[in-house]
Computed example of a mutant assay.
Amino acid sequence: MPDFSTRRTMMVDTQVRPSDVTKFPIIDAMLTVQREDFVPVAQRETAYMGENIDLGEGRVLLEPRTLAKILDALDIAPDELVLDVGSALGYSAAVIAHMAQAVVALEDNEAMATEAQDALMSAGIDNVITHVEALEVGAAEHGPYDVIVVEGGVTQVPGELLSQLKDGGRIAALFMDGPLGEVRIGYKIDGAMSWRRAFNAGAPVLPGFEKQDAFTL
């Protein structure tokens, strides 16, 4: 039986802390949440590797460093409502649940959402709602949100999703340009978005987050 507890500590000590992530709630959550329970069974052995885990159909579980640095940049408060877009099997939602008041885990794959719900329940995490809907549509009925996290690459963020962010809220998205990408944090101020660069990372572009080419004659 693999010693996942030791691997979890090593993940934090070798991937998270060296990336200048020092906020206690993030470290504590990543030491607490059993990442191996939120990956496909056949991939449990790779749960703590420092790379994105392929979930099929162009979807990945973001590497621990990327998720930790996103959460560090967002600085989620204990009274905030978070929309986790593309939460797959629920790992990111489980980690965020340790910091936020509540999390809406949005997933367009019904089978993944069901697995996520089971894993979250097994972990005793009761402040996450799983919601099945197209990722680019969001989950307006539970919003508006203080924070939105997009768990994958984008070339653009749909306006429908941005409309669900509270004024004064913030969103993290990984903007891809070919194989390279950078995480940017967007702030909604008086209804307008202002983006700033956070750090480099990479992930496949999520369905619905591709840039639509303008039609020209």
Score class of each variant (00 low, 15 high):
P2V: 14
T6V: 03
R7F: 12
M10S: 00
V21S: 00
K23M: 02
I27M: 10
V33C: 09
V33S: 12
D37F: 12
F38C: 00
V39R: 03
E45Y: 11
E45V: 14
A47S: 11
M49C: 06
I53T: 07
I53M: 11
I53F: 09
I53S: 05
D54W: 13
G56N: 07
G58Y: 13
L67K: 11
L67P: 02
D72F: 12
A73W: 07
A73G: 14
A73K: 04
A73H: 01
I76P: 00
D79R: 12
D79M: 01
D84T: 11
S87F: 04
A88K: 05
G90R: 09
A102N: 14
L106Y: 06
L106F: 11
N109S: 12
N109R: 15
A111Y: 15
M112V: 06
E115D: 12
A116H: 03
A119N: 13
A119E: 01
L120W: 07
S122C: 00
G124Q: 13
V128A: 01
T130V: 15
V132Y: 01
A134G: 08
G138T: 04
A139N: 11
H142S: 10
G143L: 00
P144F: 01
I148G: 00
E151V: 10
Q156C: 11
L162M: 14
K166L: 04
K166M: 11
K166T: 04
G168A: 09
L174T: 08
M176T: 02
M176I: 08
G178V: 07
G181P: 10
E182R: 09
K188C: 05
K188I: 08
K188S: 09
A192F: 10
M193I: 15
W195F: 12
R196H: 15
R197Y: 03
R197K: 14
R197A: 03
A198N: 05
F199Y: 00
N200G: 09
A201C: 02
A201I: 05
V205G: 03
L206P: 03
Q212D: 09
F215C: 08
